[in-house]
Structure formats: C-alpha cells, structure tokens
Computed example of a mutant assay.
Amino acid sequence: MRTNRNLTTLATALLANPHAHHWAYNLHQHTHIPRNTLNTQLHHLTQQGHLTNHWETPHPPNRPPRHYHQPTPTGITWLTQLITNAHPHHQPNPYTGPPPGTTQP
C-alpha cells in the first residue's frame, strides 16, 4: 500500500485507541478523509491482515448496523512504523474531537 497523508492520518486515528472498535463514518468525521478513500484504505488494511472487522450485533433498531474495524497486534506494529517512517509531506492531518472508535460492543 502506498503511503500518503490520508493513510498516516488514518493510522494515527486508529492508534489513538487501538483496542477500540472503529467504524468508517466515525473515522471520516474525525479525520476528514473522503469516505470512498477511507473505505478503500480500511478494506486494503483488512486484506493485508493489519485490521480485523465485524458487524455490530445486535444493533439498535433505529439505525443500520456498524461495520467495526480494529487493529491486529501486527497491525499496531505496522501502523506505528508507518507513522514513524512517514515522509515529512505525509505527516498526518490533525483530527478533531475525542479519539474515534471509543465504542466497546
């Protein structure tokens, strides 16, 4: 996966609370990464074994279920190295609000 500012921003957001369950819309709100880009990155990180994912069960009847993502132990190491070794032009954008993904299902 090619490193860029969006990826380092996503890595920073995921590592803000690495044991939490993160969902794409919440990550989008806090990082301002475009949703299509974010979903593609989450998909690739999952395929590479850096994230696990699962659907929220049970989910509240007033909204669709959330698709949660969580860094794996090797993913935490990889994401940390990604941030540490990022080119100065790829430093993460700051995100706003509390650390994303603070839900523990």
Rank of each mutant, 00 (worst) to 15 (best):
T12V: 07
I83V: 10
E56W: 01
T40K: 11
A11W: 13
P73R: 09
R63A: 03
N62W: 09
L10N: 00
H21W: 03
Q104C: 10
H19N: 06
T3V: 13
H43F: 08
P88S: 04
L15V: 12
I83D: 05
H22C: 12
P58R: 01
P73Q: 11
H54C: 10
L79G: 01
H89I: 00
G75F: 12
G49K: 06
T8G: 15
N4M: 05
T96Y: 05
M1R: 02
P98S: 13
I33C: 12
L27N: 00
N39E: 08
L27P: 04
T102S: 00
Q48A: 12
G97C: 06
P99T: 10
A86M: 09
T72F: 12
L10Y: 10
L27C: 10
P65N: 11
H30G: 02
Q47E: 14
H32D: 14
W55L: 14
A16Q: 10
P92L: 04
H28D: 10
L51Y: 04
H43I: 10
T84A: 14
H19A: 08
T12Y: 05
R5L: 03
P71Q: 03
Q70W: 08
E56C: 02
W78S: 06
Q41V: 08
T57M: 01
W55A: 15
P73F: 15
Q29P: 06
L51W: 02
W23C: 12
H44P: 04
P105M: 14
H59F: 08
A11E: 00
T37Y: 11
P98Q: 15
T31M: 05
H69E: 10
Y25W: 09
T80Y: 13
R5V: 01
G101C: 04
T96N: 09
H19M: 12
N17Y: 06
T80P: 07
E56G: 03
R66N: 11
T77R: 05
Q70T: 11
G97Y: 00
Y68V: 07
H19Y: 11
G75T: 13
T8K: 03
H69R: 04
N53L: 08
H87C: 06
T12D: 06
Q48N: 15
Q48V: 04
Q104K: 03
A13M: 02
L82N: 07
